[in-house]
């Protein structure tokens, strides 16, 4: 049985889709069979970020409505044979996502994939709650900025209360992925520090992704950043995060950072 991971944040524009694609690719690069599922019905973007936008035939809603088989809707990545995409529908209404339909699709994906990465839409409405509903693990994407931190706190509360795991009385593992982190601004005190965010949200840290042109460039050319340039700082951050997600004990660092700053990082709890 594969593991289901929801990538969520509450707030829009913090890097959920970029992170879902990068983590999915990073796990697939470990030769583990991975599918990334876009839950943002009506505003799909994962296909663009993963460079599959010309190849979408069927989508998640087609599968839920029984108009296509799951195998027909899955798009295999051209560069990585262990990486798949299940796109969202661009034309359908999000009411077509039914709770039973989502449960069925996730259940089927778990049987054939090692990892099922659910890319949640922004907000706390239906799409977001369905994306997290059947997850085993949550990755909460947060920018070091007050509104993002507060929305993440709200989402963590929902993860603790409104998921299938919570209803069974279990606790879902939640990890913090800090994105758009700018070490210079943090140094000057113009940005919430890693410690601040960790103290407020009190969940373990999965990784710190520095703000970088490489992220923009990767999405321009339609490649997950870990594939576009695996040596770049954000790619290293996502590759590290994927290893932690897979249970490896990797010390937290900010890739691309000066060595001297590393001293500060001791004492953070890795995920």
């Amino acid at each position: 049985m594969g593991k289901v991971v929801v990538v969520t944040s509450g707030k829009g524009g913090v890097g959920k889709t970029t992170s879902a694609a990068a983590l999915g690719a990073a796990l697939a690069q470990r030769k583990e069979k991975t599918v990334v599922v876009d839950f943002d019905v009506g505003l799909r973007n994962l296909d663009l970020v993963m460079g599959a936008e010309r190849r979408v035939v069927y989508d998640l809603v087609n599968v839920i409505q029984g108009e296509a088989k799951l195998a027909q809707a899955l798009i295999r990545d051209k560069r990585l044979e262990t990486l798949y995409l299940l796109p969202a529908s661009q034309t359908r209404d999000k009411d077509n996502l039914t709770a039973e339909g989502v449960e069925r699709v996730i259940g089927a994906l778990k049987k054939t994939f090692d990892w099922v990465i659910c890319d949640s839409p922004a907000g706390i409405e239906r799409g977001a709650t369905l994306a997290m509903r059947h997850a085993d693990v949550a990755v909460v994407v947060t920018n070091p900025e007050v509104s993002s931190v507060r929305d993440s706190d709200r989402i963590i509360g929902l993860i603790d209360a409104k998921t299938a795991k919570a209803e069974r009385g279990e606790r879902m593992d939640r990890h913090l992925l800090l994105t758009r982190y700018n070490p210079n601004r943090a140094e000057r005190g113009d940005m919430l520090s890693v410690e601040d965010v960790l103290e407020i949200l009190s969940i373990p840290l999965l990784g710190i992704v520095p703000e970088s042109m490489d992220v923009l460039r990767a999405s321009n050319i339609g490649m997950p950043v870990t594939l576009a340039d695996s040596q770049s700082a954000p790619a290293q951050a996502y590759l590290q995060a994927a290893r932690r997600l897979a249970g490896e004990d990797v010390p937290i660092s900010i890739p691309g950072e000066k060595r001297s700053l590393l001293g500060k990082l001791f004492g953070w709890r890795a995920a």
Partner: peptide, 12 residues
């Protein structure tokens, strides 16, 4: 059977 039909598109 739906499983036996493979449809691919490439929009150029």
């Amino acid at each position: 059977d739906g499983e036996q039909v493979k449809v691919t598109m490439d929009r150029g």
